[in-house]
Amino acid sequence: MKVTRFDIDGPLEIEPRVFGDERGFFMESWSRRVFADIGIDCDFVQDNHSRSARGVLRGLHFQDPMVQGKLVRVASGRAWDVAVDIRRSSPTYGRWAAVELTAEKKNLFWVPAGFAHGFLSLEDGTDFLYKCTEYYAPEHEHAIRWDDPELAIDWPLEGIEPQISAKDAAAKSFRDSEGFA
Results as ranks from 00 to 15, higher is better:
residue 3 V to D: 07
residue 3 V to T: 12
residue 7 D to F: 05
residue 12 L to I: 10
residue 12 L to C: 08
residue 13 E to I: 15
residue 14 I to H: 07
residue 14 I to W: 11
residue 15 E to R: 15
residue 20 G to M: 14
residue 21 D to A: 09
residue 22 E to T: 14
residue 24 G to A: 02
residue 24 G to H: 03
residue 26 F to H: 02
residue 27 M to F: 15
residue 28 E to P: 05
residue 30 W to P: 01
residue 30 W to C: 03
residue 31 S to P: 13
residue 32 R to E: 13
residue 32 R to D: 12
residue 35 F to K: 05
residue 35 F to W: 15
residue 37 D to W: 12
residue 37 D to L: 13
residue 38 I to S: 06
residue 39 G to W: 06
residue 42 C to W: 08
residue 44 F to G: 03
residue 44 F to T: 04
residue 46 Q to R: 02
residue 48 N to G: 01
residue 51 R to F: 14
residue 54 R to M: 08
residue 57 L to R: 00
residue 57 L to H: 01
residue 57 L to K: 00
residue 64 D to H: 09
residue 66 M to A: 10
residue 68 Q to T: 05
residue 68 Q to D: 11
residue 69 G to Q: 06
residue 69 G to L: 04
residue 69 G to S: 13
residue 70 K to F: 11
residue 75 A to Q: 12
residue 78 R to N: 11
residue 79 A to H: 13
residue 82 V to K: 08
residue 85 D to A: 15
residue 87 R to T: 01
residue 89 S to I: 05
residue 91 P to D: 12
residue 93 Y to F: 08
residue 93 Y to D: 00
residue 95 R to K: 06
residue 96 W to T: 01
residue 96 W to F: 04
residue 100 E to S: 11
residue 102 T to R: 13
residue 103 A to L: 07
residue 103 A to K: 05
residue 104 E to G: 14
residue 105 K to F: 06
residue 111 V to T: 10
residue 113 A to Y: 00
residue 115 F to I: 00
residue 121 S to V: 01
residue 125 G to C: 07
residue 127 D to L: 08
residue 135 Y to V: 04
residue 139 E to C: 06
residue 141 E to T: 11
residue 141 E to V: 09
residue 142 H to I: 03
residue 143 A to V: 07
residue 145 R to G: 14
residue 147 D to C: 10
residue 148 D to K: 06
residue 153 I to L: 04
residue 165 S to G: 10
residue 166 A to I: 10
residue 172 K to P: 02
residue 179 G to R: 00
residue 179 G to I: 00
residue 181 A to W: 13
